[in-house]
Simulated scan of single mutants.
Amino acid sequence: MHRNANSNSGIAELILENTHPLQQLTDLLRELSCGQYSAGCNARGQHTIGKHVRHIVDHYSVFLSGVERIGSAIDYEQRSREALLEQEPQATADRLSKLCQRLERLGNSGEDHPLQLDYATHETTVATSSSLGRELAFLASHTIHHMAIIAMLAEQVGIATSEDFGVHPSTLRYRQKQEMLQTLGAEQMLQTSFEAQSHPARST
């Protein structure tokens, strides 16, 4: 029973590590015009915010379809690559909100469980074992990676993002820990200084 409780808690935390950045991304899209969203930001115009967001949406759509259909495998090669998601930020923001809702329902449904992942090579498709938790962990890292690129592209079209946008939760936790240690160190130095002033050494 204790093991199941831990499993449920772990899945819930992984769901949150996915829905939080997706909500940040949704909020960003609400600020963008279609022009900003689809603007090419390199010499050949290949990199746009829209293309990176569409790529993120595709991965979650494939993952959720594979999880929600019993007996179905997850194959990230089978992405829809819907052009609308590269061109219309408001419609894509609505799609992201629905994906978050589906993820939250998934988090309420229970514990970690096995999944099948299909991976296409040049000559065949390899079926490999995975799990709900492992795929959620992959998606969280995958999303943050693309959001870091999106933050740079947004800056090029005049949109600023928050300091934690596109930063992996583990990095944020590390920064918080370092800030706490620095604060603690400063407090200890002040305390030492105060004690030294309150009890000066006596000369003999």
Rank of each mutant, 00 (worst) to 15 (best):
V62P: 02
F63G: 00
L64Y: 00
L64C: 01
S65H: 12
S65R: 12
G66T: 05
V67T: 05
V67K: 01
V67E: 01
R69C: 08
R69W: 02
R69G: 00
I70N: 13
I70K: 15
G71M: 14
G71E: 14
I74C: 04
E77I: 09
E77S: 14
E77P: 06
R79A: 11
R79D: 11
S80C: 13
R81Y: 05
E82Q: 14
L84D: 07
L84C: 05
L85T: 11
L85I: 07
E86L: 08
E86R: 07
Q87C: 14
E88G: 01
E88Y: 05
E88R: 04
E88L: 03
P89I: 06
P89M: 10
P89E: 09
P89N: 13
Q90D: 10
Q90P: 04
T92Q: 09
T92M: 08
A93W: 07
D94N: 11
D94Y: 04
D94V: 02
R95K: 12
R95W: 04
R95S: 07
L96M: 09
L96H: 06
L96D: 08
S97D: 04
S97K: 03
K98F: 02
L99P: 10
L99R: 10
L99V: 14
Q101A: 10
L103I: 01
L103W: 04
E104M: 05
E104G: 00
R105Y: 01
R105N: 05
R105K: 10
L106G: 01
L106N: 02
N108L: 10
N108V: 00
N108S: 09
S109P: 02
